[in-house]
């Protein structure tokens, strides 16, 4: 598996140069990293929280912490798994602190639009598809670790190695965790879900 950047395309320097510059205190370089990965980070945060406000907070906080920790980043390693790790750890903390899993349903999109001043079409995002809604509900019931591994693999297309890095577990664990997550999700979708799988 390669370790190519998971980023929004731009013409800028490669990640390593930007990290290096950031480590020297170059805020412009860090700003470029932020813009490069903001979508991926936000997407992961949203997948794990399915709440706009939480995702917003997590995504921003991820970069705040990344800035704080950039000095410890080992040059040459892929940037995104490192960011993903910060996201998932925050999300796990959030879950635990709330003593519950993230909300099943997404926030009312109309409100979101108002909140953000985004004149978006709610219908575009709202679960019009029953199956999608069901899938979201089932996904939300998965153990946070299973959600995370699915999010990283399916939604974010990270390699097993990168997921291992992002979750801080061995690659073998990624493999087994992924298969359990998929099987659990499939079972829940089939309606055989038990409530205790966590």
């Amino acid at each position: 598996m390669d370790s190519a950047p998971r980023r929004t395309l731009d013409d800028g320097p490669d990640d390593t140069s930007l990290v290096q510059a950031s480590q020297r205190g170059d805020q412009a370089a860090f700003g470029q990293l932020v813009r490069r990965y903001q979508r991926a980070v936000h997407r992961l945060a949203w997948t794990l929280t399915r709440s706009q406000s939480d995702a917003d907070d997590l995504a921003q906080e991820t970069f705040v912490r990344a800035w704080g920790a950039i000095g410890r980043f080992e040059l040459g390693l892929p940037v995104y798994p490192w960011l993903a790790r910060i996201v998932t750890n925050q999300a796990f903390s959030l879950f635990r602190s709330r003593k519950r899993r993230p909300e099943t349903s997404i926030e009312p999109l109309v409100e979101q639009g108002q909140q953000w001043g985004i004149d978006d079409d709610p219908a575009e995002h709202t679960a019009t598809n029953e199956r999608d809604a069901r899938l979201r509900a089932c996904f939300a019931q998965l153990a946070p670790e299973h959600q995370a591994v699915l999010a990283l693999r399916v939604m974010q297309d990270l390699s097993y190695d990168e997921i291992a890095h992002a979750l801080g577990v061995p690659a073998g664990t990624v493999m087994s965790r992924l298969s359990r997550a998929r099987a659990d999700l499939k079972r829940r979708m089939a309606g055989e879900a038990s409530e205790d799988a966590s």
Partner: peptide
């Protein structure tokens, strides 16, 4: 299931959101 997940659980707040994301950070 993988494919459905991609469809069902994906969200992007839009370019307006990201336009000043770095500023907010």
């Amino acid at each position: 299931l993988d494919g459905s997940l991609l469809d069902a659980i994906d969200h992007d707040p839009g370019d307006a959101y990201f336009a000043d994301f770095a500023d907010r950070v």
